[in-house]
Design a protein around this nucleic acid. Structure first.
Lengths: 338, 338
DNA sequence: GTGAAAGCGCTAACAG
DNA sequence: CTGTTAGCGCTTTCAC
């Protein structure tokens, strides 16, 4: 079964392909094509279930109606949830999403951007990894809409939607201090993206503001993509060497989940005297016994702001004058006490 | 900055575009193009960072090197994990993934298939919703590779990767019975896809084989996409009306997670006398106090089998003779006792 | 060994 | 009001 083309429709309707094309693109009125012809052609299109070949259209018009989405890992609930919301909104506007996971690997990220480029995606939504600033600059130089999120690239003039990471850990740390905690550990990843660094800084600043000293022994950095065993061992070591720890702040949900696993293994109870807080919420924390307080990122709002910016830029990419300036959105995280 | 085309390269290298094209496609040797020319052209390609326009290539060749992935909801960890694995393997073979969430809505699923079609995706990976059998048939009739997974469409001659759902609930139920449970409730969704029905049947059969009667009062069906409040209320009601319940088998992880939330609200302890089992694992269950036993689906293997079939069909789609017959893969779930 | 040219399906000047 | 036609960038047949 061969796919239909605009030609087949034209032949069947006994009009030219131009006429069909105009009707297909809603330019019939403006081209003052007669009602009779429009109706006839539309009837045939419907009857034959003709769908224009989007690839040909893309080649001709230069836009593909797809948005490239680059995240760290689509199987991380944080990214998956955002992906889902973005997909929904994009779908309603006729856009499709092509996604890829960068694994925090700049080489892979660069390669993915290349692939997206050669596929002519209309816009990019990127959770950036360090080292791809130049690639993003290139995109911008070509006038392609880009929004970065989750992490900021401070010295890049690019739209971004971020959460105030500094404040997130600040309020969490402050909460712990107010609860009388004296030895608050901080567990994070070794990926020094702006966002992670800020989470660390928020923690440090809160300690300082409340007259506590930052103790490097209570700071653990886990390599990204560490095999589980190593991570477990590293965390165990920290707990063993520092029995005075009375609270732990994890800079990201999957580390906190690993942490809970380790605490279970070493049979350390979470209670009034030993508190855990995670950055990013997760069902695990809500249902845990006892429940775990978290710094929650407004996922819904993040996704909304991202796609709004993208769609707006896309809608106005023809007349650059109409494009609003850079959007640098900073949303506030919420502390959920449990 | 205008994008380069093959023409620019040809001009710069002072050869014809044909030559460039051959070199680009690795047909240089077979066309017996001289080494000197090849090297010169390749140097220029590298120097100018030329990337062929994939859209034009697609229009010409008819294949887009992208695979359409239709899942119920990309933010469900089960689908997200599978999506991730599929993405990885596809990426290594030069394929990209375009995903969409069907929300169990046949109209949306149909529409998405149309969109993918007009975008000429090379192959489809679909977690089917009932009512799209005809659309899948159409795809097959056109010779496009399709693999369905998670749910089977029994009367369709299409590649599928499924898990033995019947056996999954059977062994879980048997486990509970062997633990001495007499009133095992079953909570499932109202979506009557083959896979969910089989989970129910496995539960029923196990009861029967062990001389227990199926009690409809202990069977609760939650509407898909139910607002949280309703679901909670429905579950509460079941627990209230049937205090004799000594175990609950949830047919899917998100229902079990909801269930845990409800049990927390009504302060019902999970212990030797009251056991919970979920279909599909999740971090929540592993870390829960007490931990929750689950029927685990071999996600990794599912993803692997899917992408293997797809890539194999794709590789041999030119010579249909070489295509192996239908692959109907059935994998076994594992019961994880915790 | 290399090049000219047709054409994939569609859009949009430009003609009439 | 509708049709003719020139490409979009690439692959591939055929010719030299």
């Amino acid at each position: 079964m061969k796919a239909l083309s605009i030609k087949d429709i034209a032949k069947k309707a006994e009009v030219s392909i131009t006429t069909v094309s105009f009707i297909l693109n809603g330019k019939a009125a403006q081209m003052r094509i007669s009602k009779a012809v429009i109706e006839k052609v539309e009837a045939i299109i419907k009857e034959m279930e003709f769908k224009p070949n989007q690839v040909a259209r893309s080649l001709r018009t230069g836009n593909t109606k797809t948005i490239g989405l680059l995240v760290e890992d689509i199987s991380n609930p944080f990214f998956a949830s955002i992906a889902r919301k973005i997909e929904d909104k994009a779908y309603k506007k006729g856009y499709k999403i092509s996604y890829s996971s960068t694994e925090n690997n700049p080489a892979k990220a660069k390669d993915l951007i290349e692939m997206f480029k050669s596929r002519q995606v209309d816009a990019y939504i990127i959770a950036p990894v360090p080292g791809i600033e130049d690639d993003i600059k290139l995109l911008l130089a070509e006038g392609i809409p880009v929004v970065i999120f989750d992490r900021n690239l401070p010295d890049l003039d690019v739209n971004s939607v971020a959460v105030d990471n500094f404040n997130g850990t600040y309020i969490a740390t402050e909460y712990l201090i107010n609860k009388g905690k004296k030895n608050i550990a901080f567990v994070t990843v070794d990926v020094h993206v702006d966002q992670m660094d800020n989470r660390f800084l928020g923690y440090q600043k809160a300690l300082k503001d409340h007259g506590q000293l930052f103790n490097t022994a209570l700071y653990t950095e886990i390599p990204f993509n560490n095999p589980d065993d190593n991570t477990d061992a590293q965390l165990k070591l920290m707990f063993e060497l520092n029995p005075e720890i009375d609270a732990v702040l994890f800079s990201t949900n999957y580390l906190a989940i690993k942490g809970l696993g380790v605490l279970k293994q070493i049979n350390k109870q979470i209670n009034e005297d030993f508190t855990i807080i995670s950055y990013d919420d997760h069902d695990v924390f809500r249902l845990h016994t006892p429940p775990i307080s978290v710094v929650d990122q407004p996922i819904e709002e993040i996704a909304e702001r991202i796609i709004d910016i993208v769609l707006h830029e896309l809608a106005n990419s023809n007349n650059p004058l109409n494009r609003r300036g850079l959007s640098k959105v900073v949303l506030q995280p919420h502390f959920i006490e449990r």
